[in-house]
C-alpha cells in the first residue's frame, strides 16, 4: 500500500513528474528563446509561474457550470499523471507493465485533450467554445496517425506491451531503421496533441484570445498548464521509449540518465519545430493530416507488415 502510494505520489508519480515537466517547459522555452536570438527565461521561470498562478484568485464565470468548470482540470491532471506509471524510465519494464499498456498510455494521453474541450465548453464563453471545438476537430486529425505510427512499431515487435517492444528493439536494433517514417509522423502528431505552434490553432491568441483556457484563471489555469507540461514529457517519453529505446537495458542509474537525455532531445526537436513553423488554419491542419500524414502512417504500417511477413 505504502509502496503504491510512493509510486503514485512521489516517484515516478506526481512529485517527480511535476518537477520533470517544469524542467521540460524550461528547456522548451529557453531553446525557443535562443533560437530567436534572445536570452530567454531564468531556470526557475516555470516554477514561479506555477506558484504565482496557484496563489491567484479563482474566477468562475456566473454563466459557467461551476462544478464541471472546477472538476475538469483535475481530471486532466489525473490522467496525465497516471500515464507516467506505464512508461519505462530506468529499466525496460515500467512499474505496472502488462500486455496492452501502450494502448492504455495512448488513451490516457487523449483524456486531457477531451478535458480541454469540456473545460472550454462549460465556461460558456464564445472564445472558449470556438477554441474547444477546434481542440476536438484537431483531435480527430492527429489522433489517427499518432495511434497508427506508434502501433505500427508495436506490430513489428509483435507485442502490445512497451516492455516487450523495448526489449525487442534492443535485441534487434536493425529493425529500428524501418521505423523512420513512424517517428516523424508521431512527432508531428505530438505537436498537434500539445497544441504547439504549427498546430496551436485551439489557443490561437491572435484570433480567439486564449481558446479553451480563456475563462480559466488562478489555480485551475495552473493545473491546466501543469497538465500540458506533463503531457509533453509523457509523450516525449513514450516516443523515445518506442522509437529510440537504447540504454533502457542498462543498469538502473545510467539507464535513467540516458532516458532523461532522450526525453530532453525529443522536447528540443519539438521546440525547434515550434520556432520554424507558423500557425496553420484549422482547415489546412485537417487537410494536411488526412492528406499527407495519415498516408505516411499507413505506408509505415504496410512496410512493417511486409517486413514482418518476409523477414521475421
Amino acid at each position: 500500500m505504502i509502496k503504491e502510494l510512493f509510486y503514485l505520489l512521489i516517484f515516478p508519480g506526481f512529485l517527480f513528474i511535476s518537477a520533470f515537466a517544469l524542467a521540460g517547459e524550461y528547456i522548451d522555452r529557453k531553446l525557443y528563446a535562443r533560437f530567436q536570438n534572445r536570452v530567454g527565461p531564468p531556470w526557475f521561470q516555470p516554477l514561479a509561474d506555477l506558484i504565482k498562478l496557484l496563489a491567484k484568485e479563482d474566477i468562475v464565470p456566473c454563466d459557467a457550470n461551476a462544478n464541471m468548470f472546477k472538476l475538469v482540470p483535475v481530471f486532466a491532471l489525473t490522467a496525465a499523471v497516471a500515464s507516467i506509471i506505464y512508461i519505462p524510465l530506468w529499466q525496460s519494464s515500467s512499474i505496472y507493465s502488462f500486455p496492452g499498456d501502450v494502448i492504455v498510455v495512448l488513451y490516457l494521453l487523449t483524456i486531457p485533450t477531451l478535458c480541454f474541450f469540456m473545460g472550454g465548453w462549460y465556461s460558456t464563453s464564445l472564445f472558449a467554445r470556438i477554441g474547444s471545438v477546434r481542440t476536438l476537430t484537431q483531435l480527430f486529425a492527429y489522433e489517427v496517425p499518432l495511434f497508427m505510427s506508434i502501433l505500427s512499431a508495436a506490430v513489428l515487435a509483435d507485442s502490445w506491451s512497451i516492455k516487450d517492444i523495448v526489449n525487442f528493439y534492443n535485441s534487434h536494433p536493425g529493425y529500428l531503421l524501418f521505423n523512420g517514417i513512424g517517428f516523424v509522423v508521431s512527432m508531428i502528431a505530438l505537436l498537434g496533441k500539445l497544441e504547439k505552434t504549427p498546430f496551436d490553432i485551439p489557443e490561437a491568441e491572435t484570433e480567439i484570445v486564449a481558446g479553451s483556457f480563456t475563462e480559466y484563471s488562478g489555480r485551475l489555469l495552473a493545473i491546466f498548464r501543469l497538465t500540458l507540461d506533463i503531457e509533453m514529457v509523457v509523450g516525449a517519453a513514450l516516443i523515445s521509449a518506442i522509437f529510440i529505446p537504447f540504454g533502457l537495458n542498462f543498469s538502473p542509474v545510467p539507464a535513467f540518465i540516458i532516458t532523461v537525455i532522450k526525453i530532453e532531445l525529443v522536447i528540443a526537436m519539438l521546440s525547434l519545430a515550434r520556432t520554424i513553423f507558423a500557425r496553420l488554419r484549422i482547415d489546412q491542419m485537417v487537410n494536411f493530416c488526412w492528406k499527407y500524414v495519415v498516408p505516411l502512417a499507413l505506408t509505415q504500417l504496410l512496410i512493417n507488415f511486409l517486413i514482418k511477413g518476409f523477414f521475421r
Binding site: R29, A33, Q36, V39, E205, T206, A210, T214, E215, S217
Partner: peptide, 21 residues
C-alpha cells in the same frame, strides 16, 4: 520584441484579462 527580451524578467504578454496580473 526580442531586442529587449522581457521574458528575461518573466514578463509575458497574455491575451485574456483572466490570465494577466
Amino acid at each position: 520584441t526580442p531586442r529587449y527580451d522581457v521574458e528575461r524578467f518573466g514578463i509575458q504578454l497574455k491575451s485574456t484579462p483572466r490570465h494577466a496580473d
